[in-house]
Amino acid sequence: MAQYSLTVNQKRYTFDVAPDTPLLWVLRDTLKLYGTKYGCGIGQCGACTIHMDGLPMRSCCLPIESIQDKQIITIEGLTENADHPVQKAWEEEDVPQCGYCHSGQIMSAVALLDRIPDPTDEDINRAMKGNICRCGTYPRIRKAIKLAAKDISS
């Protein structure tokens, strides 16, 4: 066990965990931020996607010892009122079915639009294929990203 500090959603946290503890489990078990989901533990499904210094990362594969003093944003901290264009589009296009993977989907989509404000289908595929959805919401994810892109550009 060792002491670590981390800024999550603009809030500074200090806690004791084993050095190899993945950020995912720090968020969920230590900080009780349950919006970030466990899906596979090996960075294959994207359910645990968060932003680290503005980049989308799989929190299940980030040992806490390797990310000291990083800025972390989770789904809970993305906006105050759930009104990011991506969040709005996600509801408007009625994207989620079971909803479990969508914290990760939304975090990946936000990062994509930060980088490419007007993505092509190919850009969307490249950015989103790391996020699995077993309910099959893929066509609605695509539509929602395009809707959010329109919203951002206007």
């Binding site: 989770t74 759930a82 009625d94 989620p96 909803g99």
Partner: peptide, 12 residues
């Protein structure tokens, strides 16, 4: 629109 999606979109 699925009533739960206003919660899903914020991880809640």
């Amino acid at each position: 629109i699925d009533l739960k999606n206003k919660f899903v979109k914020k991880g809640a």
